[in-house]
Design a binder for these strands. Structure first.
Lengths: 215, 215
DNA sequence: AAACTGCCAACTGTCGACAGTTGACAACGC
DNA sequence: GCGTTGTCAACTGTCGACAGTTGGCAGTTT
């Protein structure tokens, strides 16, 4: 019994639109015209409206009555508020991961860290893909479905605000150090330590986003 | 026709449906028939579908492709997972409240506690209304809009699962003690203490829900 | 020129109808 | 009797069209 891999038009529209919003193909601040996008996707306005509402509930769009849906623009206060939420969730995830992790989880985390190091030594910048992979692996190790769900949504909103992020080698290096330290704490089953490191890590990332936002 | 149509039909449907789901008027496990409910509300299926999708994003309904929307039934694993999320959020809120609270916030918290005590001494059971009011006042004192938003959604889902909750005087007394202790920690600006008390409090509430679920 | 007013195009909100899928029931074969 | 298969009603997914609202623009007034 394979779950219907055939997604509804609304579901497909959600995926396409989410991609376009996150990649900046639909730039922050711009409006989403229902008839225009519906024609472009080859569907009617009904499913598209449901897709727009869904993305709005994920925080990727902002709904204004009778005016339409807008892509929220990066804003300092929004970044701070969002990182307070992210910190609450990921610190809890780090604690749970430290106490629930299996050896397989540990190997996966170490692999991601090793790949990041190798990539960095090869002279390439720390790809955001690997950063996401690390945090993803960590919340999987926490084995808390509802927390994982929320973390995914928050990280998505961070990606959206990340358009104004610039490459900063020192910051990237510090992030990799944080990740390594996190793995150590999780390996030791040190919940409090993992939480502390995660808080410091996210604090650093948040600060970096705020500074690059002011440029 | 409503002369001042301030809210869209979909928005009105969201409010009505949410009320019906939370009060159990639409019992857990039952299905929401689109045509039936649409006729009962006097609207067409379009706005109702948007309302259903919205409530699903809040976790008050569960969508099954080609089958419709169901009210999720209380389940032990779900309760545990939900309380892990709630604990992560409200502990963070308690910490923030301890460091950001104003004197007005403190007075409000004390007022809610005092009202609970008076109510209890009058021989009446600790109304859930006051419990909600306390947690609401606390997250307001935390001044973190994104966290507050998520806490509201989680508490709503707890209300939904709460149908199987029975009155338990000892538990109510312990809850009020926890609240008082929380206020003391927040008054002292003791973030770590507030977080610890909150964690113990929610752990107790979760355990109580789990036991009354098995009866 | 600035401000006000009425009009208009564009867009969202809403509706009724059609098409595709699902689960159940009945008829059939073993 | 039990399992299989064909049929069907009910419901969700989708569409095109209509109605109401919004913001802007032209024309008018002071």
């Amino acid at each position: 019994m394979t779950p219907p891999l055939h997604l509804s038009l609304a579901g497909q529209a959600v995926d396409v639109l989410r991609e376009q919003v996150l990649t900046g193909e639909i730039p922050p601040g711009s409006r989403v015209n229902e008839v225009e996008v519906a024609q472009k996707l080859g569907i009617s306005r009904g499913p598209l409206r449901e897709a727009i509402r869904h993305l709005a509930s994920e925080g990727l769009l902002r709904l204004v009555p009778h005016r339409g849906a807008f892509v929220p623009a990066a804003d300092a206060d929004e970044v701070k508020a969002l990182f307070e939420l992210r910190t609450a969730l990921e610190c809890a995830a780090a604690e749970l991961a430290a106490s629930r992790r299996t050896d397989v989880d540990l190997v996966r985390l170490q692999e991601v860290c090793a790949e990041s190091r190798a990539n960095y030594r090869a002279g390439q910048p720390f790809p955001y893909r690997l950063d996401l992979a690390f945090h993803q692996t960590l919340i999987d190790a926490a084995r808390s479905p509802r927390i994982a769900e929320q973390v995914r949504l928050v990280q998505q909103r961070v990606v959206l605000l990340r358009s104004a992020l610039e490459d900063d080698p020192p910051h990237q290096h510090a992030s990799m150090d944080d990740h390594d330290e996190l793995v150590l704490a999780i390996a030791d089953g040190d919940a409090a330590g993992a939480s502390t490191v995660m808080r410091r890590h996210l604090s650093r990332v948040c600060a970096q986003m705020l500074t690059s936002l002011n440029h």
